[in-house]
């Protein structure tokens, strides 16, 4: 509490470290980042509420407001899925849609002033609070590992267990270099969730960090730097959510390809 009331510029390193620590309780496996979970739930709740409201009162003749937005977004995602997929899987498009919306909302909290929520929560005795869940690798890995689990599931479902195993054995160098093939394919497969999670985390973390640095500057520089970086971040926020969605579709599309 005492640290929060001091001017931020007094100890920049501590200020930044303070803002980059999660609100967590427990130890080991049960060390829970309450802020990531909480914000994730709240945003998921918002999405569910809007989905339920819109899905309950659809008007085919005179679509208005949020229904229009969701319709065009849906068509956009659905078009992309249909382009990427040879086979039809009705689960992929809503999955990609949800990924995009949820990640986009979590990312967009990056634009909230960095000191606002930590300050509010400090009044309730919470020492650390990180508002943006995607700056927490736990969240980004949760997403990418979920996608990875689906990739493995569909690989086995479409190719069969033996068929999936064969891609490890005979890909990419043919049957004479089986050990090398196993290593190569393993690296390739593991790189998928890793890159997916770290790309999102890295981008959002950097964005947050620059905002924190901007907050350390004198107040007459802050608006300029903050707004310029904010405008740039709007692009990053949308782009990262979009990339995550596209890669989800691509990985699942590859999983659906028959073994050759």
């Amino acid at each position: 509490m005492s640290g929060a009331s001091e001017p931020a510029t007094a100890n920049p390193v501590e200020y930044i470290q303070h803002h980059l620590a999660n609100w967590h309780v427990g130890h080991g496996f049960w060390s829970v980042n309450l802020d990531s979970l909480l914000v994730g739930w709240v945003l998921a709740g918002v999405i569910m509420w809007v989905s339920w409201r819109v899905g309950r009162s659809l008007d085919p003749d005179r679509p208005t407001g949020i229904q229009n937005v969701l319709e065009s977004l849906m068509e956009f995602v659905d078009g992309m899925v249909q382009e990427a997929f040879a086979s039809r899987n009705p689960f992929v498009a809503p999955l990609a849609f949800t990924v995009f919306v949820w990640v986009f909302l979590m990312n967009s909290l990056d634009l909230v002033p960095v000191d606002l929520f930590p300050k509010i929560f400090s009044y309730f005795g919470v020492e650390h609070f990180r508002l943006v869940p995607t700056t927490d690798p736990q969240t980004t890995f949760a997403l990418s590992l979920s996608v990875f689990a689906l990739v493995i599931f569909y690989n086995i479902k479409v190719k069969g267990p033996m068929g999936y195993l064969k891609t490890f054995l005979f890909h990419p160098f043919g049957k004479w270099l089986i050990p090398a093939n196993i290593v190569m394919t393993l690296v390739e497969e593991i790189a998928k969730p890793l890159s997916l999670a770290l790309r999102l985390f890295g981008n959002m973390f950097t964005g947050e960090l620059v905002f924190l640095l901007a907050a350390l500057l004198p107040f007459y520089v802050q608006p300029l730097l903050g707004s310029v970086w904010g405008i740039f971040e709007m692009l990053v926020i949308t782009l990262q959510a979009f990339i995550f969605m596209v890669l989800t579709i691509m990985y699942l599309s590859i999983a659906h390809e028959e073994a050759h």
Partner: peptide
């Protein structure tokens, strides 16, 4: 940690 599992369940 449980955060990861929790976010996966939420997702």
């Amino acid at each position: 940690t449980f955060t990861l599992i929790g976010q996966m369940i939420t997702f």
